[in-house]
Protein backbone atom coordinates (compact mmCIF):
# COMPACT_ATOMS: atom_id res chain seq x y z
CA UNK A 1 0.00 0.00 0.00
CA UNK A 2 1.24 3.50 -0.75
CA UNK A 3 0.02 6.74 0.71
CA UNK A 4 -1.29 9.51 -1.50
CA UNK A 5 1.12 12.37 -2.24
CA UNK A 6 -0.70 14.59 0.27
CA UNK A 7 -0.36 11.99 3.00
CA UNK A 8 3.31 11.23 2.40
CA UNK A 9 4.14 13.34 5.36
CA UNK A 10 6.81 11.32 7.11
CA UNK A 11 9.30 9.20 5.19
CA UNK A 12 12.19 7.26 6.59
CA UNK A 13 14.72 4.88 5.14
CA UNK A 14 17.78 3.38 6.77
CA UNK A 15 20.38 0.98 5.51
CA UNK A 16 23.32 -0.18 7.57
CA UNK A 17 24.80 -2.68 9.99
CA UNK A 18 25.19 -2.88 13.75
CA UNK A 19 27.51 -5.80 14.47
CA UNK A 20 25.92 -8.83 12.80
CA UNK A 21 22.52 -7.17 12.44
CA UNK A 22 21.58 -5.58 9.11
CA UNK A 23 18.82 -3.00 8.84
CA UNK A 24 17.46 -2.15 5.42
CA UNK A 25 14.08 -0.46 5.56
CA UNK A 26 12.02 2.21 3.85
CA UNK A 27 8.60 3.23 5.13
CA UNK A 28 6.21 6.13 5.29
CA UNK A 29 3.50 7.31 7.65
CA UNK A 30 0.84 10.05 7.58
CA UNK A 31 0.90 13.23 9.66
CA UNK A 32 -1.92 12.07 11.91
CA UNK A 33 -2.86 8.88 13.67
CA UNK A 34 -0.90 5.99 15.07
CA UNK A 35 1.40 3.88 12.93
CA UNK A 36 2.67 0.68 14.51
CA UNK A 37 6.03 -0.96 13.95
CA UNK A 38 5.34 -4.61 14.56
CA UNK A 39 7.69 -7.55 14.66
CA UNK A 40 9.34 -10.07 16.94
CA UNK A 41 11.95 -9.06 19.52
CA UNK A 42 15.31 -8.32 17.90
CA UNK A 43 13.88 -7.50 14.45
CA UNK A 44 15.13 -3.91 14.59
CA UNK A 45 12.09 -1.95 15.78
CA UNK A 46 13.93 -0.07 18.52
CA UNK A 47 16.89 0.58 16.21
CA UNK A 48 14.54 2.25 13.71
CA UNK A 49 13.15 4.49 16.47
CA UNK A 50 16.65 5.38 17.66
CA UNK A 51 17.69 6.22 14.10
CA UNK A 52 14.60 8.40 13.64
CA UNK A 53 15.39 10.29 16.84
CA UNK A 54 19.03 10.70 15.80
CA UNK A 55 20.25 8.70 18.81
CA UNK A 56 21.87 6.24 16.44
CA UNK A 57 23.61 7.30 13.26
CA UNK A 58 22.93 5.06 10.29
CA UNK A 59 22.98 6.02 6.60
CA UNK A 60 19.49 6.90 5.42
CA UNK A 61 16.89 9.58 4.83
CA UNK A 62 14.33 11.12 7.18
CA UNK A 63 11.87 13.81 6.10
CA UNK A 64 8.97 15.21 8.07
CA UNK A 65 6.77 16.97 5.54
CA UNK A 66 9.04 19.71 4.22
CA UNK A 67 11.73 19.34 6.88
CA UNK A 68 14.80 17.19 6.24
CA UNK A 69 16.26 15.57 9.36
CA UNK A 70 18.71 13.34 7.58
CA UNK A 71 20.05 12.67 4.10
CA UNK A 72 23.48 12.14 2.49
CA UNK A 73 24.74 15.51 3.67
CA UNK A 74 22.51 16.45 6.60
CA UNK A 75 22.31 14.78 9.99
CA UNK A 76 20.39 16.73 12.62
CA UNK A 77 21.46 15.95 16.20
CA UNK A 78 18.67 14.58 18.44
CA UNK A 79 18.11 17.91 20.21
CA UNK A 80 17.55 19.63 16.85
CA UNK A 81 14.79 17.19 15.81
CA UNK A 82 11.28 17.94 17.03
CA UNK A 83 10.77 14.42 18.27
CA UNK A 84 9.25 13.00 21.42
CA UNK A 85 10.55 9.63 22.60
CA UNK A 86 8.79 7.39 25.12
CA UNK A 87 11.09 4.60 26.27
CA UNK A 88 10.05 1.30 27.86
CA UNK A 89 10.96 2.78 31.24
CA UNK A 90 9.70 6.26 32.09
CA UNK A 91 13.23 7.62 32.73
CA UNK A 92 12.01 10.61 34.71
CA UNK A 93 14.75 12.85 36.08
CA UNK A 94 14.93 11.91 39.78
CA UNK A 95 16.44 15.27 40.83
CA UNK A 96 13.41 17.16 39.52
CA UNK A 97 9.79 17.20 40.72
CA UNK A 98 6.98 15.98 38.49
CA UNK A 99 6.17 19.58 37.52
CA UNK A 100 9.82 20.32 36.68
CA UNK A 101 10.05 17.10 34.68
CA UNK A 102 7.02 18.13 32.63
CA UNK A 103 8.50 21.57 31.96
CA UNK A 104 11.98 20.28 31.00
CA UNK A 105 11.17 19.93 27.31
CA UNK A 106 8.55 22.70 27.30
CA UNK A 107 11.10 25.34 28.39
CA UNK A 108 13.54 24.32 25.68
CA UNK A 109 10.78 24.32 23.06
CA UNK A 110 9.92 27.87 24.11
CA UNK A 111 13.58 28.87 23.88
CA UNK A 112 13.78 27.45 20.36
CA UNK A 113 10.60 29.37 19.44
CA UNK A 114 8.64 26.21 18.63
CA UNK A 115 4.91 26.82 18.18
CA UNK A 116 3.01 25.82 21.31
CA UNK A 117 0.60 23.26 19.84
CA UNK A 118 0.13 21.28 23.04
CA UNK A 119 -0.74 23.35 26.09
CA UNK A 120 0.28 22.44 29.62
CA UNK A 121 -3.24 22.38 31.08
CA UNK A 122 -4.66 20.30 28.20
CA UNK A 123 -1.89 17.72 28.49
CA UNK A 124 -2.17 17.54 32.28
CA UNK A 125 -5.92 17.10 32.01
CA UNK A 126 -5.75 14.47 29.27
CA UNK A 127 -3.26 12.38 31.20
CA UNK A 128 -5.05 12.98 34.54
CA UNK A 129 -1.84 13.95 36.33
CA UNK A 130 -2.82 17.25 37.95
CA UNK A 131 -2.77 15.76 41.45
CA UNK A 132 0.82 14.53 40.93
CA UNK A 133 2.44 17.83 39.95
CA UNK A 134 4.02 18.62 43.31
CA UNK A 135 5.21 15.09 43.98
CA UNK A 136 8.75 13.79 43.66
CA UNK A 137 9.31 11.16 41.00
CA UNK A 138 10.34 8.52 43.54
CA UNK A 139 6.86 8.49 45.08
CA UNK A 140 5.06 7.55 41.84
CA UNK A 141 3.74 4.21 40.67
CA UNK A 142 4.88 2.68 37.36
CA UNK A 143 1.77 3.82 35.51
CA UNK A 144 1.99 7.35 36.91
CA UNK A 145 5.64 7.58 35.93
CA UNK A 146 4.87 6.55 32.36
CA UNK A 147 2.02 9.09 32.13
CA UNK A 148 4.40 11.85 33.27
CA UNK A 149 6.97 10.71 30.70
CA UNK A 150 4.32 10.93 27.96
CA UNK A 151 3.28 14.40 29.13
CA UNK A 152 6.89 15.55 29.27
CA UNK A 153 7.51 14.38 25.71
CA UNK A 154 4.33 16.00 24.33
CA UNK A 155 5.05 19.33 26.04
CA UNK A 156 8.37 19.51 24.17
CA UNK A 157 6.08 20.25 21.16
CA UNK A 158 7.26 17.38 18.93
CA UNK A 159 6.20 16.91 15.32
CA UNK A 160 6.50 13.15 15.74
CA UNK A 161 6.07 11.01 18.85
CA UNK A 162 8.01 7.75 19.09
CA UNK A 163 6.86 5.10 21.57
CA UNK A 164 9.05 2.10 22.25
CA UNK A 165 6.88 -0.56 23.87
CA UNK A 166 5.68 1.92 26.50
CA UNK A 167 3.43 -0.64 28.19
CA UNK A 168 5.86 -3.50 28.44
CA UNK A 169 7.11 -2.69 31.93
CA UNK A 170 3.60 -2.30 33.38
CA UNK A 171 1.16 -4.75 34.93
CA UNK A 172 -2.13 -5.59 33.22
CA UNK A 173 -4.33 -3.23 35.27
CA UNK A 174 -1.98 -0.26 34.79
CA UNK A 175 -1.69 -1.04 31.08
CA UNK A 176 -5.42 -0.52 30.64
CA UNK A 177 -5.27 2.95 32.23
CA UNK A 178 -2.39 4.08 30.01
CA UNK A 179 -4.05 2.48 27.03
CA UNK A 180 -7.10 4.69 27.39
CA UNK A 181 -4.73 7.69 27.62
CA UNK A 182 -3.25 6.68 24.25
CA UNK A 183 -6.69 6.45 22.73
CA UNK A 184 -7.62 9.92 23.99
CA UNK A 185 -4.27 11.22 22.80
CA UNK A 186 -5.04 9.79 19.40
CA UNK A 187 -8.48 11.36 19.32
CA UNK A 188 -7.74 14.79 20.77
CA UNK A 189 -4.19 15.65 19.67
CA UNK A 190 -3.26 15.61 16.01
CA UNK A 191 0.20 14.25 16.59
CA UNK A 192 1.64 11.42 14.48
CA UNK A 193 2.73 8.54 16.67
CA UNK A 194 5.05 5.72 15.72
CA UNK A 195 4.27 2.95 18.14
CA UNK A 196 6.61 -0.02 18.55
CA UNK A 197 5.22 -3.25 19.92
CA UNK A 198 5.49 -6.97 19.54
CA UNK A 199 1.97 -7.35 20.96
CA UNK A 200 -0.57 -7.59 18.13
CA UNK A 201 -3.41 -7.07 20.63
CA UNK A 202 -2.18 -3.60 21.49
CA UNK A 203 -1.65 -2.73 17.85
CA UNK A 204 -5.04 -4.04 16.73
CA UNK A 205 -6.72 -1.76 19.23
CA UNK A 206 -4.59 1.31 18.81
CA UNK A 207 -2.96 1.67 15.41
CA UNK A 208 -4.46 2.92 12.15
CA UNK A 209 -1.54 1.64 10.13
CA UNK A 210 1.04 -1.01 10.62
CA UNK A 211 4.52 -1.70 9.28
CA UNK A 212 5.49 -5.33 9.79
CA UNK A 213 9.21 -5.97 10.18
CA UNK A 214 11.26 -9.11 10.22
CA UNK A 215 15.07 -9.35 10.45
CA UNK A 216 15.57 -5.66 9.79
CA UNK A 217 13.40 -5.64 6.65
CA UNK A 218 9.86 -4.51 5.92
CA UNK A 219 7.49 -7.39 5.28
CA UNK A 220 4.19 -5.52 4.90
CA UNK A 221 2.79 -2.02 5.28
CA UNK A 222 -0.84 -0.86 5.29
CA UNK A 223 -4.04 -0.45 7.27
CA UNK A 224 -3.90 -2.45 10.46
CA UNK A 225 -7.06 -4.47 9.82
CA UNK A 226 -6.03 -5.30 6.24
CA UNK A 227 -2.56 -6.48 7.27
CA UNK A 228 -3.86 -8.44 10.24
CA UNK A 229 -6.28 -10.23 7.94
CA UNK A 230 -3.71 -10.68 5.18
CA UNK A 231 -1.00 -12.12 7.40
CA UNK A 232 -3.35 -13.94 9.73
CA UNK A 233 -2.05 -12.04 12.75
CA UNK A 234 -5.32 -12.23 14.66
CA UNK A 235 -4.94 -11.75 18.39
CA UNK A 236 -5.11 -15.00 20.30
CA UNK A 237 -8.45 -15.66 22.01
CA UNK A 238 -9.05 -15.24 25.74
CA UNK A 239 -6.77 -12.25 26.13
CA UNK A 240 -7.80 -8.97 27.64
CA UNK A 241 -7.37 -7.10 24.36
CA UNK A 242 -9.16 -9.60 22.17
CA UNK A 243 -11.14 -7.63 19.60
CA UNK A 244 -11.45 -7.80 15.81
CA UNK A 245 -10.92 -4.47 14.10
CA UNK A 246 -11.94 -2.69 10.92
CA UNK A 247 -10.72 0.56 9.41
CA UNK A 248 -13.39 2.96 8.19
CA UNK A 249 -13.36 6.49 6.74
CA UNK A 250 -15.10 9.47 8.37
CA UNK A 251 -17.73 10.80 5.96
CA UNK A 252 -19.53 13.41 8.06
CA UNK A 253 -20.43 14.53 11.57
CA UNK A 254 -24.01 15.03 12.76
CA UNK A 255 -23.65 17.50 15.60
CA UNK A 256 -27.36 17.51 16.43
CA UNK A 257 -27.48 13.78 16.90
CA UNK A 258 -23.92 13.75 18.27
CA UNK A 259 -22.85 11.00 15.88
CA UNK A 260 -20.12 10.51 13.29
CA UNK A 261 -20.85 8.62 10.07
CA UNK A 262 -18.22 6.26 8.71
CA UNK A 263 -17.87 4.44 5.44
CA UNK A 264 -16.62 0.87 5.54
CA UNK A 265 -16.40 -0.74 2.09
CA UNK A 266 -19.55 1.10 0.98
CA UNK A 267 -21.44 0.33 4.17
CA UNK A 268 -22.45 3.13 6.54
CA UNK A 269 -21.64 2.90 10.23
CA UNK A 270 -22.49 5.45 12.91
CA UNK A 271 -20.55 5.89 16.13
CA UNK A 272 -20.55 8.50 18.93
CA UNK A 273 -19.25 11.81 17.60
CA UNK A 274 -15.46 11.95 17.08
CA UNK A 275 -13.00 14.79 16.80
CA UNK A 276 -11.56 13.46 13.52
CA UNK A 277 -11.47 15.29 10.21
CA UNK A 278 -13.66 14.26 7.25
CA UNK A 279 -11.74 11.68 5.22
CA UNK A 280 -9.67 10.53 8.20
CA UNK A 281 -9.35 6.81 8.85
CA UNK A 282 -10.59 5.38 12.10
CA UNK A 283 -9.86 1.93 13.44
CA UNK A 284 -12.84 0.37 15.16
CA UNK A 285 -12.50 -2.53 17.49
CA UNK A 286 -15.60 -4.68 17.67
CA UNK A 287 -16.55 -6.14 21.00
CA UNK A 288 -19.54 -8.13 22.11
CA UNK A 289 -21.31 -7.60 25.40
CA UNK A 290 -23.39 -10.58 26.43
Amino acid sequence: MTLSTKDKAIRASFSGRIGDFTLDIDFQMPLTGITALFGPSGCGKTTILRCLAGLHKMPGHVTIQDEIWQNETIFLKPHKRSVGYIFQEANLFPHLTVHENLLYGARRAERHNLKETFHFNDVVELLAIKHLLKRTTTSLSGGERQRIAIGRAILAQPRLLLMDEPLSALDQATKKGIFSCFQRLHEEFHLPILYVSHDINEIAQLADRIVVISNGRKVEEGFTSDIINKLGLHPPPNTSYQAPTITAIVTNHDKEEQITWLDYNGKKICIPIQNSEIGAQITLSIQTNI
Binding site: G54, L55, K77, H112, A153, A156
Partner: peptide, 10 residues
Protein backbone atom coordinates in the same frame (compact mmCIF):
# COMPACT_ATOMS: atom_id res chain seq x y z
CA UNK B 1 19.34 10.56 25.52
CA UNK B 2 16.06 11.54 27.15
CA UNK B 3 17.34 15.09 27.64
CA UNK B 4 18.45 15.22 23.99
CA UNK B 5 15.01 14.16 22.73
CA UNK B 6 13.55 16.92 24.94
CA UNK B 7 15.65 19.51 23.11
CA UNK B 8 18.69 19.80 25.40
CA UNK B 9 22.07 20.26 23.71
CA UNK B 10 24.90 18.01 25.03
Amino acid sequence: EVAATLGASP
